[in-house]
Design a protein around this nucleic acid. Sequence first.
DNA 1: CGGGTGATTGATACCCATCAATAGTGGTGG
DNA 2: CCACCACTATTGATGGGTATCAATCACCCG
Lengths: 259, 259
Amino acid sequence: MGADVAEAAIEAYLERLQRHSVLTAEERRAILSIQGTVRRVPARRDLVAPGQQVGHAILVAEGLLCRFDLMRDGARQITALHLEGDLCDLHSLVAPKTGWGINALTPAVVVEVPHDTLRRLFVDHPNLAMAFWRDATLDASILAKWIGNIGRKRARAGLAHLLCELGTRMSATGRSSRASYALPLTQEQIADCIGLTPVHVNRVMRALREDGIVTVADGQVTIHDWESLEAAADFSATYLLPYRTSHLGLAADASAMVE
Amino acid sequence: MGADVAEAAIEAYLERLQRHSVLTAEERRAILSIQGTVRRVPARRDLVAPGQQVGHAILVAEGLLCRFDLMRDGARQITALHLEGDLCDLHSLVAPKTGWGINALTPAVVVEVPHDTLRRLFVDHPNLAMAFWRDATLDASILAKWIGNIGRKRARAGLAHLLCELGTRMSATGRSSRASYALPLTQEQIADCIGLTPVHVNRVMRALREDGIVTVADGQVTIHDWESLEAAADFSATYLLPYRTSHLGLAADASAMVE
DNA sequence: CGGGTGATTGATACCCATCAATAGTGGTGG
DNA sequence: CCACCACTATTGATGGGTATCAATCACCCG
């Protein structure tokens, strides 16, 4: 049963890779043969404590994970959200010990994939290293966007941007629509994403709701007016759109992640 | 003469790679055989306009470059600083068209390395792909740190953190000491790094100066009291320390980037 | 010398943080 | 089954950190 979960998650990740990388049959088989350990974690559990050294990457099968940075005074800043199908902490493969932590924002099921497994995979199939790298690059692209979001936007725009990004990413999984998706985050967790206090997040959400743009309630985001939300956010999905590249990346052919 | 600059820059980059990756003689030769185009750019010139598609990575030979995000209202957020020896926009290799731009903060000399050159390099030498990936990972690690820096720190701490980071990175090049280094940035550019206004950067810098911690004047940073600066910044260099890994990354052996 | 850029300082406004209180919700144990 | 507790959402009052507007000064350069 645990094995089923692992298999399903790895299949989902293979699909994800194929959204931006062209893989041979042999490479696909290699991915599917990956062995991982299934682990269920309750909400709020740290999967990786800040500064801890880890020996595996984490594939999110169910739930929502985050990467976070902890300040000396206890303040927390979430630096990345990892949805179902994301391979998070892939960076740990090349930098096993960094300053961040990984936390389960909701009850989650993850598959732990040992670094050595991945390294052997990359030795045998160099093209797969490029595919995984592409994945990590999308992550970095989101990181850079968040810097601008936090550094140069008002609270309203920052929150709107987060909701736009998550709508786009959720819809890319095929399991949600961008107009309405489940977001089981507390206002405090949202605040930790965009560098605000929970109180202010509450107020800004009320404003967006009263303007008829978006409603966030009971862990569900309902976007009534995508155009307005995008305008309020100064959002453009470009940074979320990896290019589909042919084998070994020697030619490129543009293809959007979402329709 | 231009070729000399290119060769020197590529040699410097090879050294940089070897700080975190073990390379064979053949791999070293392959790196040194890279052909690039030298380009001199005046200060404030965009090397890459936001949204532009590029076909090459940019190796910084001299000067200071930045990656930035531009808001609709014209506000700018710098998301990364690229010092001499950095291979910036490596991300463009796997995501040739993203939303950001690259700007020369100072007069600069860069070497443009075509994507195809790098792709061929990685096909012939898969271990080099891992080495470059490691480099990109350090970049991403810095991005994540900046999110925390901007989102959850006061202006004083944020500025102090930037100065600590740059001191550490500068000293890693071997050409500067972390206690005193050249930083040819205007206060406006510094403000764009940490999400503040230039006026407030000025005030916070005065406070740090009057506390006898650090002086920034005439493009020169002089840190009088590193301990205090680190404390004010809540700085720990861990996130800048890539691990030295053996060939193909199959074993790891810890080694700091700086002394 | 004039003009432009950057640094510096003052006055004021405002966005968001902080402190505080209430209400709703779900879980838990007696 | 209900009292109790912890957590979250919500709202109000107030304060503070930073933005904004504005003026002066210093400096470099043509």
